[in-house]
Amino acid sequence: MNIAVLLKQVPDTTAKISVSGGRVDENSVSKWSMSPYDEYALEAALKLKEAGGGNVVAISAGPSRCEKLLRDAAAVGADDLVHIMNDDINNLDSTQLQKLLAAAISKSNSSIVLCGKQAADTNSGSTGPGVAEILGASCMTMVSEVTKDGEDYLATRPSSSGHEKVAVSAPCVFAFDKGVTEMRRPNVRGIMMAKKKEIEIWSAADLDVDLGNSNVTINSHSPPPEKPPGQKFEGADSVSTVVAKLRDEANVI
């Protein structure tokens, strides 16, 4: 069975974002990147494959720009690339998107699915659990590591007393927090192979998904409040002031 990884292309954290009409102006985004938690998921998927076999299937939904993201995934070792082509991805609601992803996962013959716990742009955190619901799979959230344990999988996630290792069997979705290993760097050979790799392009119709109408409407957007200016203290004399502030104002000590 294969290992699916869900990858989202988001504006790079270093790119300047401009907003028009309450939405990020896509045309003004100078650089798109893989959402950081997805990178951990991809690395974990590659490790699982190295340990236990199966193909890593990288799946991304979005417009044609996502091809670069899929090729980046191939450059570090993803075997199969699936592009769910949708030019209007931002106007799909979470359920519609999850239907597409779930259908692609099934079609790719994958029994376990890895993804980031949330995307760096929308931060809704619903994709992993939502996809699991549709697939009828178990779902582990906030995962930092997955290993194979016989036929089962062992996932490391936070617990009230530190970390717990939870055994789970396929089918399962693992939504990744910051993982234990950073995504590996691509090498030139990987990049050359990625360039030649076929990308499966699937539409909603290819996946037999009826998207229906969106159930979500956004009433209003507001930018985050401006950060209040920081305060700077220098020299040994200021220690008592800093301590007082940390205790009385910030409530951290």
Partner: peptide, 21 residues
């Protein structure tokens, strides 16, 4: 050359990252 934009930017980013690290 069998070469395109994505390939060029993957090489540039890949080498930038490798050399830096």
């Amino acid at each position: 050359y069998d070469f395109d934009n994505d390939f060029l930017s993957m090489l540039t980013e890949g080498w930038g990252e490798h050399a830096k690290e």
